[in-house]
Every structure is written in structure tokens, then in C-alpha cells.
Design a protein around this nucleic acid. Structure first.
Lengths: 147, 147
DNA sequence: TATTGTTATACTCTATAACTATA
DNA sequence: TATAGTTATAGAGTATAACAATA
């Protein structure tokens, strides 16, 4: 699917969409050997930072619905990367924890992701790449414009 | 759907995805009065820059499939924004052209889009916003990394 | 044979509604 | 009553395959 697209190169929506597409394609190729995609890798990350999390808590951190989290955890559990444990304190909650396989996968896949990002940003040079990432963080932390 | 997401703020994929989401939401609100969304507006734009285009040509410029373009043009035609004309030179091709209504819609919606982008980038300040957009263009024009 | 537009179909991603169990 | 997990379902959005008309 070729693109040609001169009149679109100045449109922010187009630029963001295709930047994301390009990064996702590179990320997909790089993560494939580890059997996870970027979304699943993000799940593993939030599960290992801080307190053990239930499915709803992990879902909230990732900004997805809890029903979406069910399918995500299903997939990760089938591949032996995570395990569900009923919380003894509140038997409604499923605490999701990484297995040793999951931790090993996380370490390797995270390294691959870092390398993909580094290569993706390489055309900017180091200083400009830093500035670019900080700009994205600034844009996301700004409150939504109303009116 | 709340987000919490400290450990994700350093991930480029997360940042790009949510920047795009945020811009799309603002864009959706701003374009709603004109009865088009960002994708349809992009179609109108490519149809009015340069030569009159057939459906495949417009599709190629936007990076979508020609079957996707059928549905897009269907919607725009139903609302009286574009018209299909069989090309006399090559009767397989549908030349798609804007109606007067379509041109008026395009003018107004493009102004709204510019305003949305300006407001979205405002937290960066003018110089940094320019740099940010140029960085995106640089990233997209770079060849895909292989290996 | 190849291309354009079209339709039917399928696939991915995600959300909503309703159910069960627990609190 | 409210919450966590689950299931079934539905809705975007987009692609693939097959077909008719045309080149």
C-alpha cells in the first residue's frame, strides 16, 4: 500500500497516525520473537511496577475496559507468562502475577522495545529526540481543551 | 475511562497513541458541526489539490484500500459534498469532484481543524510546536528500519 | 491479462449489557 | 447495593476475495 501524500504532510492528525503506524510495524517485527505485542508488553510492565494488581486495576492504568483486560490476561496466561490468583482478602479480585517465564519475556522484550524506539528516533539525533519525547509528554499532560 | 499510567509515560508507543487519541477527540468535537470527520476531511483535501482524481488515486494518496474509499465516497456523496463522474477517457474510472456544498464545507472545516491543531500544540509554545511538527515529518520521511 | 469500482465477507479491536460471585 | 470477573454481543474500522465492466 503506497502513499504519496504531499498535501497531507502538514496535517497533525496524519503525521501522528502514521508515526504511530510506523513505530507499531517496527515494534511488531522486533517483539514477534518473544511472542508478545506492544499492548501485551505494556500489561506485563504495569503488573510489575509497584503493588500486585487486580485485573481492573491493571485495566485502569492502561486505559482499557476491564472486559478487554480479560482477553489480554487470557492470552498471557495461555502462554504461561502470567498467573491469576484469587485474593484471599477479597475473593472477587484476581491478582495477576508474572511467572518466571513472564519475567524473562518482559526483560528481553523490553530491551527489544528500547532498541526499536532508539532506532525509530535516530533520524532526529539525540538532542532533538529527547525534545520530541518531552513535547509528547507535555501535550498529554495538558488538560483537554473545551468550548 | 480514567488513566493513571506513570510507568507508561516514557513509552513512545503509548505517547503517540494517546496524543493521537486526544487530538482526534478534540477534532471530532470541532468538526461535528460541519458533518465530517477527520478522515473524510482528508479525502476532500486530496480531491482538491492538483488534478481531479479517481477513487483509486485518492485512495493511494491517503494510504487506504480502494474498497475503503468506496464507502468514504458513498458517505460524502449521500450528503451532497462530492459527485462521481465516469471519465470519458477511461470509462472504468470514477472521477470524484467536490460540489459547491463540498467546497464550502471544506473551507470551514479546514479552518476548524487548523484552530484545533493550534490549540492542541499551544502548551509547547510556538517555537517548540514548530520543532515538534518538523520532527514528525522527519520521522515519517525516514526509510523503514530493516534487519 | 490488468485495472476500476463494487459487493460480500471476515478480521481486529474495543465497548456495552447482562450474568455470577462476592462484598 | 456495589464491585470484580466473565461471557455474549455488537459496533467501528479496515482488509481480502470475487465479480462485472472496461482497457
Amino acid at each position: 500500500m503506497e502513499r504519496d501524500a504531499e498535501p497531507l504532510a502538514s496535517r497533525l492528525g496524519y503525521l501522528l497516525k502514521h508515526a504511530q503506524l510506523k513505530l507499531n510495524q517496527a515494534g511488531g517485527r522486533a517483539l514477534a520473537p518473544f511472542g508478545v505485542d506492544g499492548h501485551e508488553l505494556a500489561v506485563l510492565v504495569v503488573l510489575t511496577t509497584g503493588e500486585p494488581l487486580s485485573q481492573v486495576e491493571a485495566a485502569r492504568q492502561l486505559g482499557v475496559d476491564r472486559t478487554t483486560m480479560v482477553a489480554l490476561v487470557d492470552g498471557l496466561e495461555e502462554r504461561g507468562l502470567v498467573e491469576r490468583h484469587r485474593s484471599p482478602q477479597d475473593r472477587r479480585r484476581n491478582i495477576v502475577e508474572l511467572t518466571e517465564t513472564g519475567r524473562s519475556c518482559l526483560r528481553q522484550a523490553e530491551q527489544a522495545r528500547l532498541e526499536v524506539e532508539r532506532r525509530f528516533l535516530a533520524p532526529l539525533g539525540e538532542a532533538e529526540a529527547d525534545r520530541f519525547v518531552r513535547s509528547l509528554q507535555t501535550l498529554l499532560s495538558a488538560p483537554d481543551a473545551e468550548e
